[in-house]
Amino acid sequence: MAHEVSHDQAHDPSNVTNPEHAEHHIVTPIQYCLVFATLLVGTAITVAAAYVNMGAFNPVIALAIACTKAVIVILFFMHVKYQSRLIKLTVGAGFFAFIILVTMTLLDYISRAWGMW
């Protein structure tokens, strides 16, 4: 039957039509509820932390929580945890390009005031 064939295809290394047969893992509603709760808690912590004076750490904490929330949304709401390596690589590539834009431009701005040279 064709269904069994497609499963064989998944393990056939020369299969090019569907090279990385990503399992159709269906994320359950329970997982979604846990993620939802985590995101709301994270938001509450972010707001509370903003009112506590931690000096230079305030933006660090805020961004760290935001990054964590983003990662959770990407992995679970957007299913990336259960997707093929290609998708994971693609997401990484996007953030890599963004990091390059930010850090290499910052290179200029940070060093403008260094010395007279």
Partner: peptide, 13 residues
């Protein structure tokens, strides 16, 4: 999720 802390919570104390 990034806009909120960056815009609203710069220095709330």
């Amino acid at each position: 999720l990034f806009l909120f802390p960056l815009l609203y919570l710069i220095n709330r104390h």
